[in-house]
């Protein structure tokens, strides 16, 4: 046995380490230290950042109230399509951004553009992509272009049926380690409104608890079936545990007409698990779901 172990050890030591490894390691150490300095500068601006975030939140909330008020005016049979897209590209040494940003048009049956709906969905998308771009630009500025970051954004249309138009954005930000995120925008084709998860359900519905409980069950089941999977549920760190979905948790309706809840990387599980999706059985939500979305 010991001979075998020695043999193993020798083989281990024989794994050839490329010559430039040391150089790479030294470079990375430098980068990591530089990044730290940049972050410290950010800390000084902390207060300002908090204020800006607060204002944005209020605006968004106001918007959704306005949206709700209008959602009772039906517009029927609108046509939604991506008519154009622009590309944001930027490169500084080891920093790179590449974002595909679509422009969407909402038309009525006769092909006339519905200005208000068109403006609304494009504004939602733009607000989101602008945030990504400015976050990247801040990073470039803070590190003097010497940072280590790649931002990639792609989109796909995942639903476009009679009732719903959904466009999904896959956001990949690689700093030291990658971070995958998903953002999906939905347009209710009957009302022309941009909608979020809670708009799928009747006002008084207790959808958050019912769906969250189902997700927790699914997590437990997946962990039981495969010991390599980990979800943050009943973990050693209770404050990390998944507790509940929100009014605006990311979702889409899959080709079977089922509601699918999507969590970003790190949101409900360790990073290696990636983006996580859960299909919700229609039986448990159909009693309080609005017509036409879920089947």
């Amino acid at each position: 046995m010991n001979n075998n172990l020695d043999e193993l050890k020798r083989k281990y030591e024989e794994i050839e380490v490329p010559q430039n490894t040391l150089e790479l390691v030294e470079k990375t150490i430098k980068k990591a230290k530089k990044k730290e300095k940049a972050l410290n500068i950010f800390k000084d601006f902390g207060a300002t950042l908090v204020a800006i975030v607060a204002i944005l939140t209020i605006l968004v909330n106001l918007n959704s109230n306005i949206a709700y008020g209008l959602s009772k005016l039906p517009i029927l049979n609108v046509v939604v399509e991506v008519v154009n897209f622009r590309n944001y590209e930027s490169k500084h040494k080891d920093m790179e951004a590449n974002l595909n940003i679509p422009e969407i048009s909402v038309k009525d049956e006769e092909g006339k553009i519905l200005e208000e709906s068109t403006k609304k969905i494009n504004a939602s998308i733009e607000e989101y992509t602008n945030k990504l771009i400015s976050r990247y630009q801040e990073e470039v500025e803070a590190t003097g272009g010497e940072g280590l970051q790649t931002v990639n954004l792609d989109y796909e249309i995942i639903t476009n049926n009679e009732r719903l138009f959904s466009i999904r954005f896959n956001e990949l930000i690689v700093m030291a380690s990658g971070n995958e995120k998903v953002k999906i925008f939905h347009l209710d084709k009957q009302t022309g409104e941009v909608i979020i998860l809670k708009d799928l359900f009747r006002e008084d519905a207790n959808f958050k608890k019912i769906i969250s409980d189902n997700i927790k069950e699914q997590m437990k089941k997946r962990m039981e079936e495969d010991e390599n999977l980990t979800y943050w549920i009943d973990s050693e760190v209770p404050e990390w545990d998944f507790k509940s979905i929100n009014d605006d948790t990311t979702f889409y309706i899959n080709e079977k007409g089922k509601l699918v809840i999507v969590f970003d990387e790190y949101e409900v599980a360790p990073g290696f698990m990636g983006v996580q999706e859960f299909e919700i059985p229609t039986e448990i939500i159909k009693d309080f779901a609005k017509d036409g979305f879920i089947s």
Binding site: Y12, L24, V25, A176
Partner: peptide, 30 residues
């Protein structure tokens, strides 16, 4: 760093990925 590289190699099984792992790990560690 050599041991870090070798350990990574036993997982990812190729030079390019093992180097990536080393770089990322160094970054995270610092």
């Amino acid at each position: 760093y050599k041991s870090m590289y070798r350990l990574a190699y036993t997982y990812v099984k190729n030079e390019a990925d093992a180097l990536d792992v080393v770089q990322e790990s160094v970054y995270k560690a610092i």
